[in-house]
């Protein structure tokens, strides 16, 4: 079933979506994006004209089966002192782990 009405995005909905995406928007951005979202949604509304009832959604361009590798443990990338390189770009680390603020 497809929408046969036009979704109208208001500032509250923009805020809700921004919250889901963990984005903080200024009031100016909320106004701008609400406006632009409505324009884009109005534009894409015309897809509803098409009859695609029994069409299987295509989420990938070619039918590539996933070519999975054997599940073999490989040596992680390390720096010259044997520390894992994956930590080298972390803003903060603690005991060879990523440090985050308190979450509880």
């Amino acid at each position: 079933m497809y929408l046969n009405y036009m979704v109208n995005v208001n500032e509250k909905l923009t805020q809700q979506v921004a919250h889901l995406a963990r984005l903080e928007l200024s009031q100016q951005e909320v106004e701008l994006f609400t406006n632009q979202l409505n324009q884009v949604l109005q534009y894409v509304q015309k897809l509803q004209e098409l009859d695609v009832k029994n069409v299987e959604p295509m989420v990938h361009p070619v039918s590539l089966d996933s070519y999975l590798r054997e599940d073999i443990i490989q040596k992680p990338l390390e720096d010259s002192e044997g520390h894992p390189l994956i930590l080298s770009s972390a803003p903060e680390t603690l005991f060879e782990g990523f440090k985050v603020p308190p979450i509880l």
């Binding site: 497809y2 897809l47 509803q48 695609v52 069409v55 299987e56 959604p57 295509m58 989420v59």
Partner: peptide
């Protein structure tokens, strides 16, 4: 989903 269906067409 609708966009993916039209993508197939």
């Amino acid at each position: 989903r609708l966009a993916c269906q039209v993508r197939r067409k």
